[in-house]
């Protein structure tokens, strides 16, 4: 079966490259990342110049010229703000690499939507056109599903790396004191963490996509599931003494609950979050496989 998965992944990647929408969504993601990163870098550089200018005005020109704003506490607080955790808890690699945390935060916020937009019809489109009939005589439906999801995952990783590389290049060109070498661990960590994160949303989208022959119903379904899971994430705000406090554990059923763990320096944080995202991926991929195996094509 794995040979079939590999063949389907390769073919789906070739198809995705030729599909305008996939390219459009990728370009949208890259464009947003680069423009957002550029704006962020410009903002950081503005503060850098402001601080140096003010210190120089106060007669502290010498020390100010060597000021490392990027390593300053203010920036670390900014990274913690994106992470939603205490500054001291944020992973060291993120603290040392301006723009990477910003890009990571943007990816965690917007990537689920881009995943839904780029892959909602990965199966539903083939069900509607009935093109799925051609491979089903030659490969297990599970292999078809996994191949399609794997292709989307490869695209996701490729676009994430491309976006991060572009941002790092911008930061290296525009920010003094920005170290590419220091940024690389943060980029690597981000890409590694985005894989299980993205996979969980790809699985949710795949489940919606196999459940209907109408691509737009799949799109609506994927967004509905995401919103429902997001709502579950808010259950933690219910006070413990509230009559509805019994709903609080439902927050663990929401992928968003595990986002803050991805930022933590202590390895148990990211590892447990990765496990949770892989768990979500496994549950939704299993559901998707069961639906696809049983449904009429």
């Amino acid at each position: 079966m794995w040979h079939s998965v590999l063949l389907i992944t390769r073919h789906e990647l070739a198809v995705a490259v030729r599909t305008r929408r996939a390219l459009f969504v990728s370009a949208l993601y890259l464009g947003a990342a680069i423009l957002g990163g550029l704006a962020f870098v410009v903002l950081v550089r503005f503060f850098e110049h402001e601080v140096v200018a003010r210190l120089s005005a106060q007669g502290m020109g010498g020390p100010a010229a060597n000021l490392d704003v990027l390593g300053a506490e203010a920036y670390q607080k900014l990274a913690a703000f994106f992470a939603g955790v205490e500054p001291e808890a944020v992973a060291a690699s993120f603290k040392n690499a301006v723009v990477v945390p910003f890009f990571f935060w943007g990816s965690l916020v917007f990537l689920p939507f881009l995943i839904v937009l780029s892959s909602f019809d990965q199966v539903a489109g083939d069900l509607q056109s009935r093109a799925i009939l051609y491979p089903t005589l030659r490969a297990r439906r599970l292999a078809i599903l996994l191949g399609k999801v794997a292709a989307q995952l490869v695209l996701l990783v490729a676009v994430s790396i491309a976006g991060a590389v572009a941002l790092v290049a911008i930061a290296a060109l525009m920010l003094r004191g920005f170290s590419v070498v220091q940024a690389l661990p943060a980029v690597a960590r981000m890409v590694v963490l985005l894989v299980p994160f993205g996979l969980s949303y790809l699985a949710i989208t795949a489940f919606a996509s196999v459940s209907t022959k109408q691509p737009f119903a799949a799109l609506f379904g994927a967004f509905a599931i995401m919103v429902a899971l997001r709502v579950l994430g808010f259950m933690s705000v219910i006070p413990e003494d509230h009559p509805a406090a019994w709903l609080r554990p439902l927050t663990w059923l929401s992928p968003s609950t595990y986002q803050s763990g991805l930022w933590l320096d202590d390895l148990s944080g990211p590892l447990s979050s990765v496990a949770a995202y892989l768990g979500f991926a496994a549950v939704f991929l299993t559901l998707a496989a069961l639906v696809l195996e049983r449904r009429d094509l």
Partner: peptide, 17 residues
């Protein structure tokens, strides 16, 4: 039928290529 991959072919009537 995927177990018979290569031994069975089918031409559906209205499936888009």
């Amino acid at each position: 039928l995927y177990r018979l991959a290569g031994k069975v072919g089918a031409m559906p009537q209205d499936a888009a290529f």
